[in-house]
Each structure stands twice: as C-alpha cells, then as structure tokens.
Design a protein around this nucleic acid. Sequence first.
RNA 1: GCCGGAGUGGCGGAAUGGUAGACGCGGCGGUCUCAAAAACCGUUGGGGGGUGACUCUCGUGUCGGUUCGAAUCCGACCUUCGGCACCA
Length: 822
Amino acid sequence: MDYSPGVIEPKWQKYWEEHGFYKTVEGGEKKYYLLEMFPYPSGKLHMGHMRVYSIGDVLARFLTMRGYNVLHPMGWDAFGLPAENAAIEHQVHPAQWTYDNIAAMKKQQKALGISYDWEREVTTCAPDYYKWTQWLFLFFYGRNLAYKKKAAVNWCPQCATVLANEQVEEGGCWRCGEIVVVKDLEQWFLKITDYAERLIADLRLLSGWPERVRVMQENWIGKSEGAEIRFSVKGKTLKLPVFTTRPDTLYGVTYLVLAAEHPLLDELAGGAEQEAAVRDLVARTRKLTDVARSSTEMVKEGVFTGAYCLNPVTGEEVPILVGNYVLMGYGTGAVMGVPAHDERDFEFAKKYNLPIRVVISPPDDILNAAEMTEAYLAQGVLVNSAHFTGMANKKAGQAIIAYLKEKGWGEGKISFRLRDWLISRQRYWGAPIPIIYCDACGMLPVPEKDLPVLLPENVVFKAGGQSPLKQHAAFLDVECPSCGSDARRETDTMDTFICSSWYFFRYTDPKNAEQAFSREKSDAWMPVDQYIGGIEHAILHLLYARFLTKVLYDAGLTQAVEPFSRLLAQGMVNKDGAKMSKSKGNVVSPDEIIKKYGADTGRLFILFAAPPEKDLDWNERGVEGCYRFLKRVWRLVDGYADIARAENVEFAAPDESALALRRAFHLALKKVTDDIEQRFNFNTAISAVMEAVNLAYGYINEKEADIHRAVLAEVLEILALILAPFAPHLGEEMWARLGNNGSVHLQAWPEYDPKVLQAENVEIVVQINGKVRGRLIIPAGLGAAAMQAKALTDERVVLALAGQQVLKAVIVPDKLVNLVVR
RNA sequence: GCCGGAGUGGCGGAAUGGUAGACGCGGCGGUCUCAAAAACCGUUGGGGGGUGACUCUCGUGUCGGUUCGAAUCCGACCUUCGGCACCA
C-alpha cells in the first residue's frame, strides 16, 4: 500500500478524538506546562502559526512519551479591532465574525494533528473569561495600580483609539501603521512603572530566555541612575527639580532648560520681555508629532525665559531657558546644562553663546574651555568644584549626592524610560472597563457581584470607528452602586493586551466560576515551563505578562515570580527571502500543504529546514524532499514489517552489518533525544533519522535474502517511536503495521543502549603538525601508545614523516593522533 | 551613537577546540521503461596532477593573535539584521 496521508491523517485524528487523547493529566510527579502563544482569530492559519504549533507539538508528544504530565492548551486572543472593522465593512457582528474564525482555525489546527487539550480552551471575548479580566482591572484599581489621568497620549486616527507607548513603532500604529498623533486626553493607565525596577532586576532569573529578548526589555525599561537636584528660582519661592545622571558635573552647570510642557513655565516667563518668544517656541514645539520631535534631524532651539535659578552648591545665578528638545515625560522635564561635559549641551551652548565651564580634567592634560571643540565625556578628576576638586569623578558623583542630601538640596534617584501602560481604548470589541460615574458620588468601581459588565449585542456600527457604546442608552445608564441615583458607565474598553496578560493562568483552571483561577490549581502548573512564540512580542506581550504576574505574586495569588521560565522565540517564515504577504503574492497556506502532501510532511519540512529560532525560507522543493523521505520510511516499514513480524525464525547471531545497522538506530535515538531535550534542534534530529533510514536501505539492498529478523524488528520499532513526535499520523500507522496495539504516542520513549553504540573498530585520523595525513581503522579503546604505534605504520604518514623528528604526539582516544614534527 | 545577533558549497543548513560542508534541495551519471514520471544506485566545495586505486593544494567575511590543532577562543576591522536613541 502506498503512503497516503490523505487517508491516514483523518483516520488517526478521528481515533485520537474518539479516544479522548490529549486530555491533561493532573498531579503526578513530573509536570510540564508547555505553551504556544495563542493566536488572534483572523480566520486563517498562516505559516507562522504552523511553525509555532509544529514546534510545540513535537515537544508535547516527546515529553509525554518521556513520562511528563504535560499541560498543552490552546485558546483565542479574541478581542480586537479587526473584528470591529469587519463589522463596519461587512455588516456582520464582531462576535459572529470572531466565532466563525475560531471554528475555521480550530479545524485547521486539528488537521495539523496538534495535540491540544481542547477541554481547556479559553476565548478572551467570552463573558466567562472577560468577567475575570474585568475583575483583574478592579483588583488593580483596588491596589492603586489603575488610575485615570489626563495626559499627552498617542492617538491613531485610522483605528480611532489611543495606543500604549509599546504599541507605537517608529511613530506609527503597531496594527495599521498610521502615523500616531499626540493628544491630551483623559485615559486609564496601569502603573507598570511601579514595577520597573523589578522588571529589570528579575531578567536575571530568566536564563532560559534568549539574550536578545532580555536585552530588548532592558533597553525598553531603560534604567538610569543619577540624582534629582532642586534649584531654587531667583526672587521666588519656587524650586525646580532636575534629574541628571551626572551629579559629578554639578559645578559646571551654566544654564537650565525646561520642556515646553513644563508646568512652571507660565509663572517663570510671565511678564518678562521674552514672553512672546517663549510662547512662540512652546506653541511650535507642542504642535510637532512625537516622531518629528524625537528625530535626530530636529534643530535644537532654546529661548531665555527671563528667569534665573541658583545652583545650590555654588549659589551662582544661571539662566533658565525653554527648549524644544526637552521631554516632559522623562525625569522632571527639566535638565541642567553642562556644556563642557555633554555633547548636546556643548552644541547648544555654542549656538547660544552660553558659558562653558570645565569641571572634569583628563588625567594628564588641562582643558581650556575657550579652545574646546567638543565636550569632554571621559573619566577624569574634578576641578573647579570646591571641596570636591581632586576627586575621581565617579567617586565625586556619590560624594556630591551625599552632600546634597545632607543639605536637603537633592538626593540620589533612578529614572526609567518606561511609562505607565495606557489601557483604555475607544472601541467596542473589548472588555468594558468596569467603572461607573455618578454625579453625586464620583467615580466608582462596579461591585464584583455585578461582573461581568456585558458588552451589549444590539449595537450599530458607524464608519469612522466611534464606539457604539457611547450612544447605547441601555449600556450607558446604570444605577449608582453607592447612592442609587442615575449614573453612567465608562464606555472605554480595555487594551486586548490585558486579556492576553493572564490567559496562561486561566488555562490551569479554565472552568472556575468563582475565581479567575484558584491558587492551588495554578500553583500546580505555573510557571509555564516552555513558552513559544514570535519575537514581535519581545516587549509588548512579554513585558505586560511579566508585570501582571508580579502584581498577582505580590497579592499572594500565585507562587510564580515570573510567568515563563523558558522562552523560545521562533523565527519568521519567509519565501524567496521576503516575508509572506498578499501584496507580494508569495503566500503559501498550511491548507494547500496539507492537501498536497499531508500535515506530517508540512510539519517535518518546517522543522527540518532551519533551527527554530532562525528565519526559515519556504521552499517547495524542500517540502517535496520531506514528502519523499516519509514515503521512503513508509515503504521500508510496510515492505519489511512482515519479515520483522515473522515468527519461528531460527536464532542466528547478527553479523557485522546487522550490528552496524543496530548501532546506527541507537545512535539516531540518542541524537534525537538529545537534540529535542537539550537544544530544540529538530533539524539535526530529523537528519539523524534520515541517516539511519538511508543505512537501513543499504543493509536491505545488501542482504536482501538474508536479513536479520530480530535486528530489523528492533530498528523498525525504534524508527516508528522516534519519528512519532514529528510525523504523528505516520507514526501511528507504522506502529500499527508493525503489529502493535494501542497508540504509539502512549508508548514510553525508548532508551538507547550505550553498549550497542560502542563499535569494535573506529576510524582515526593521523595529523602531522595539525594537517590530516592519513586515516586508519583501529580497534576501539586502544591506549595512547598503541594508537601512536599504529599511526606510525600508515604508509602515507611514513612518507610524510621522512627524515623528520617527532617531538611530541597529541592523542585523542578513538579519534586522532597528531604528530608534532620538525 | 550605544547594545545585541549573524556572516560556512549553487541553495537551506551541519560541525561550538580534534576528519569542515552531516542531512536535505539542486546538478551530473546510471538502473528500470517503447518513452516519461515515480522509485532505486552512484557522484557532487574550488584549483592542480595521475589511465587508475589515488594524490597535492586552497578554502568557513577581512587582518592579526593564542594553541600540537581554530568555522569554533581572543583582539581589531568590514558587511548585514534587530533593539534603543536629543531619555539629560
């Protein structure tokens, strides 16, 4: 019978489904929580999905055979804008659209033969899930980690909603690419900045994460150590706090610059003759988009406000300016200018003729401010710095902080680049923020007993994207939970990244009607042992999920300090060197591949073509190669199963080539085991199986009439077992053909026999001065002296050695002899 | 500018101090066939020598270093990808 994936794949899928395979086994000694990032239900699986699921499924099946209780769930990140846009365009309700898509994608996942426990499926747009998303919001609110504030925020005109900082990429919306504009709006935030320190510090715990992801998070959080120094304003009682990373240069301050949005600006510049100029600069600066404002091409501008402040340590008057390059959102929105020791300040001071004062001197040179052509940034010794003069600048920084603190003028401070997480969205298809506004009582949380705040279904969508909730009386009108009078609901919904920041907890206890999850059940599985997903979430999802987990940990709701112990960031699937996209016309869908070659072939190719963390180039020829290999495997098993199964064959000791065959399969088994377990190098694992299969064909061709039955039976069995995680359907078919009952996936992973791996003879190389000069076969396990003696008998070696003296021999047992000669 | 990754045949990739190019794709030659496809067998880094079993030589981005021995370790540089970037 030919290899027919179109027949066997549905057959085994049905078998698994009917026999309740892949239901999670709770308890037990060895737990393993294996998770692939759940998808947004766009309606169609793409190759990226197929890749993550294939990787995950190999691990799930392998670990199960290794005796682990594996939790391997799947679900849907089901709230989000595309559903709503589809609703506007095609007059279909977002819920309908979403659930239809889920059904379609689930069917595709099943056709791939992925071993999910579907009884734990979670769908974030289902009320029994988002009830707990809302509960979490209230939980944050109750812990003062959710707040509403008017702020300059990122607005995407295309999506008609605000975005978090993490969701703006190069000035554009992460979803649609539209240029983001800055607006002053009242919005909801989660206080992720409270956790900045721990989010950075705990990256140390994540040794199972790729370094590049850790570095990306570290850059994003952006920790800077320095000091906050308060300058008093001349003639007023005001204090101007300034953040600096260079307190050691405090004696070199010659001016201060404030951000255009600085709250004290009006007071400082008001009435001064420069007021008009200040207003002009402020107006022009505030009009700029964030992109333009942070562009390196922007020309630095500054205007004197008319006010002066006093350097606390010198009492000296320095001018206060307003500048277009100072950011209100970082530090205190005010910076001190030390032109002698900061590149930007130097440039700025030259432009506006501000004084330059040297306070750090290089070890063996004297700087002259008037002659400097660039700022001096390196280490050195303080000069012109009162009693700190003569100190090494690093030490002086600490000393100055201590001095400021003692005098009450400032203190050491750490600043982060990270901003609070803006979570409100002005769209319909998300979890409603459970807040009520009452004219009498103000802002109130929805009582827990009233959760979930249901999204109304009878809504009308309008072009332009305005949320239908804003016009929906039945939704809007609510009784105040405190005084009972008429009140209104919050109409903003939550960022969908909140839904996906806790779903891995829900999987551990998916049906819990009383809690988001129970501590007992989640502790049994958390943290996720292995998380797999795309690098595009290196900051977004992975940072938010870490934050949320830490908040839950602090509240005693989980034992997990970090949600994901190990992370595999899989590479993209490209074609012809470019990302698959409709516009390029280079899209290959998993459906086509399943139809043409079967899921096993597709999975095998995707795992074989590249190591998982690297980008993979889709290549139809390569797919055919994998198809050919599976056919070859099937022919081998199908063609020789009867011989392997034959009984009453007289026992004969295996000859040399039968032993070599056996060795090859035990070696493949070892290689597959190590490659999956230790390095996720599925590509080399598969190549090891291919090598063994090639050898089996060689053996059969050589021995056609005289095949060693027991050895053949053993190697075919190993073959079925080690191929099963990669090609689960064919694995079952082979297992059955070999006369076994039950599923191959329920078998224990075989153990290789180290004794079988030992060959009688080994090939060694003989090098002379590191160059290969001969190869010879010697008995394995020979001693160093004997190896050297053997090496000296090789003809080529003798020839190459002619007339030279052997000074030294380096010997690696069973591998190599290197003769050092002169 | 700062930080991190990657550079190996015609292509995807293997080898993380010990035989460079496993395995696969593609190419070439053959078997089977009326023929083709499929399948199977052999061969395949560049250059040179030999009728031949073979053999010499160069070769892992570049240049240097460490070592008996380097794709692998160290230093400098080049190219490329990614993150951050007027963050004080």
